[in-house]
């Protein structure tokens, strides 16, 4: 009998390598760069498989169906196969429901992606971080001021990576943080009560720490100190990597 469904036959054949095959996985493109003559390497952040690099064959051809589909900040359904580090994209489908990021929100989106690219190890799944990333992108579209959203994402990211901030108790004890007191936040240790002289770490008020624990940045001083504290912690974990998006956002602020 002739094969009257060539597409179907192809699918059946492909299932022979089922163990190296991932089907219809929700993912976001974090970054992509040209590969060979007409292909693209896309770094994706997938829900169940974490950060994975995929080759999108022929994606840079003028009439490729993948053009315009493999866009950052859009939820996609991806299928891929392969047993080496660089896997091959088999199909991509648009999921929709997420308006394109524009203006400052777009810059913030780049910032999230730059953090994920630098801090997430490949093939390390972080399902709850993925869900939070998706929620954060939706928030970026809807709001005007993005600072609080970025702080919350940074906190979640560090927590998922195993560097959770100690915001409600003093380091090394169970004494609760008091809003009216002043503390020093020491890297890889936590908050210690401010003593008279200058010590290591960053001075931060108890109120800021409690506000950060509650994801509340409505207070201007908490927002400012929270940003400085997060920057110190992220810089430490980034180990000297410069975030280019941060520079661009700072430039833009100067123009306004």
């Amino acid at each position: 009998m002739g094969n009257c469904f060539p597409g179907l036959m192809h699918k059946i054949n492909m299932s022979g390598i089922a163990k190296n095959r991932i089907q219809d996985e929700t993912a976001f493109v974090l970054h992509s760069y040209p590969f060979r003559e007409t292909s693209l390497v896309v770094e994706v952040f997938s829900r169940q498989h974490g950060r994975v690099p995929l080759v999108a064959r022929g994606a840079r051809r003028p009439r490729s169906a993948l053009r315009g589909l493999l866009m950052s900040f859009q939820p996609l359904q991806l299928s891929w196969f392969g047993k080496h580090e660089l896997r091959t994209l088999h199909s991509a489908e648009w999921q929709g429901g997420q308006p394109l990021l524009q203006g400052t929100a777009l810059m913030c989106g780049f910032y999230l992606n730059e953090l994920l690219l630098n801090l997430l190890a490949r093939d390390d799944p972080h399902e709850s971080l993925f869900d939070y990333y998706r929620l954060t992108l939706q928030r970026l579209v809807q709001e005007v001021d993005h600072a609080a959203t970025l702080r919350c994402f940074e906190k979640h990211l560090l927590q998922e990576l195993g560097y959770a901030l100690l915001l409600e108790h003093e380091a090394g004890s169970s004494r609760p943080i008091v809003a009216e007191r002043s503390y020093r936040y020491v890297l890889e240790h936590g908050a210690v009560p401010q003593s008279g002289q200058e010590g290591e770490g960053m001075t931060v008020s108890g109120k800021t720490l409690l506000d950060m624990a509650a994801d509340d940045y409505s207070d201007a001083s908490s927002a400012r100190e929270g940003k400085q504290l997060m920057r110190m912690l992220l810089n430490h974990h980034l180990g000297g990597v410069v975030l280019h998006t941060r520079e661009l956002i700072q430039d833009l602020r100067k123009f306004n």
Partner: peptide, 18 residues
Amino acid sequence: FTVEGEATAHYLATLLRA
């Protein structure tokens, strides 16, 4: 109209409008 092109347009628009 790629994400990079959009970012460039936003940056230039802010710079030029200023």
